[in-house]
Design a protein around this nucleic acid. Structure first.
Length: 353
DNA sequence: AACGGAAGCT
DNA sequence: AGCTTCCGTT
């Protein structure tokens, strides 16, 4: 009750400027859990997403593999961070992974080959947060939404099912990265990138999609460029998170302060009402070469040095960031002054898998 | 390292 | 409901 954990503070009424258009700069669903009925606390998948979104944690957890795949490079650290967030000092990977396993049934996550490799089911995540979309789609017959079966009944060219471009248009994202270099998105070749690829997960949630060979091609392409303007591979600087959601307390990231407002491209009367569609998540990502994992990260827009954000130091990340459990009251756990020392990652240089 | 049952907590 | 804790099994 009195755990004055910051997670509670996340609730703080966003002093969001009118400039902030939910659904635009960053997928609204990414933080939806806090406000979703039934769960006022941060959810694990959300936290994971959060970490994945910050490059500081690349040595700990990072997108890797295809679409929504990520790997937990440093299980202990992830667990520690999670423990801090939840005021559960005794959290460990064993427990955390149990929670992750519960996601299997929920179809939010599933395991992929490789140790500590998991994969997000974005569509599920979106659906979870925007059940209305589904209904709206059904009701309005909106071409944008979940297309029942990409095959056979696929909408014609007239009613393209949610192509990235559609999304792009709808939620035109301020793409910080330059157009050509790392985010070629949909070039003539890629623009066929639509839902002609398997989309089983929508209805079945079965998640066994296969990538569209045609457009994915060999690893050589850029990032998937997710719809909703959220590209997991591109821990983009701009949209980032609304400061109010991620208190500096947890993420002393200069970004926060530089984010007074967001470059909501679609601003000016965009379709804010309906944030995004649930489909695509997995169907439309080209693959990402592992080599690109460390692709040049975008620089922060204008403000504070990007350097500050991540600094060149990946080593100190864990120590710099979330280590503060002071916000947690002891009564919520047996956490006495946090026995867990700022675990210095001994031989963690490479942070490799 | 991963899985999943079982019980417990909030 | 969403974990957390614990644990036997693979």
């Amino acid at each position: 009750m009195d755990c004055s954990c910051v997670s509670d503070l996340l609730f703080a009424p966003p002093a969001l400027p009118a400039l902030w258009t939910p659904g635009f700069a960053f997928p609204d669903w990414a933080y939806k859990p806090e406000s979703s009925p039934g769960s006022r606390q941060i959810q694990l998948w959300h936290f994971i997403l959060e970490l994945l979104q910050k490059e500081e944690y690349q040595g700990v957890i990072a997108w890797q593999g295809d679409y929504g795949e990520f790997v937990i490079k440093d299980p202990d650290e992830v667990a520690r961070l999670w423990g801090i967030r939840k005021c559960k000092p005794h959290m460990n990977y064993d427990k955390l992974s149990r929670a992750l396993r519960y996601y299997y049934n929920k179809r939010i996550l599933h395991k992929t080959k490789g140790k500590r490799f998991y994969k997000f089911n974005f569509s599920k995540v979106v659906l979870v947060n925007y059940p209305l979309l589904d209904m709206a789609a059904a009701a309005t017959g909106s071409p944008l939404l979940l297309t029942p079966s990409p095959f056979g009944g696929a909408p014609g060219p007239d009613a393209p099912p949610l192509t990235p471009e559609t999304l792009q248009t709808l939620f035109s994202a301020p793409r910080l990265g330059e157009p050509g270099a790392r985010t070629p998105l949909f070039t003539s070749e890629t623009d066929k990138l639509r839902l002609d690829s398997p989309f089983p997960f929508l209805s079945s949630g079965a998640t066994s999609y296969s990538k569209p060979p045609g457009l994915l091609g060999p690893y050589g392409r850029a990032f998937p460029e997710y719809p909703w303007n959220f590209n997991p591979y591109l821990t983009g600087p701009f949209p980032k998170l609304p400061p109010s959601l991620y208190p500096p307390h947890f993420y002393p990231n200069p970004l926060a302060s530089s984010l007074g407002h967001l470059p909501s491209a679609g601003a000016g009367g965009g379709p804010t009402a309906v944030p995004l569609l649930a489909s695509t998540g997995e169907g439309l990502g080209p693959e990402r070469p592992s080599g690109l994992a460390a692709a040049p990260r975008l620089a922060l827009p204008g403000t504070g040095g990007p350097e500050a954000a991540l600094g060149g130091k990946e080593d100190s990340d864990s120590e710099l960031e979330i280590t503060d459990v002071s916000g947690c009251s002891s009564d919520s756990e047996g956490d006495e002054g946090l026995p867990a020392p700022p675990k210095a990652k001994a031989g963690k240089g490479g942070a490799g898998s």
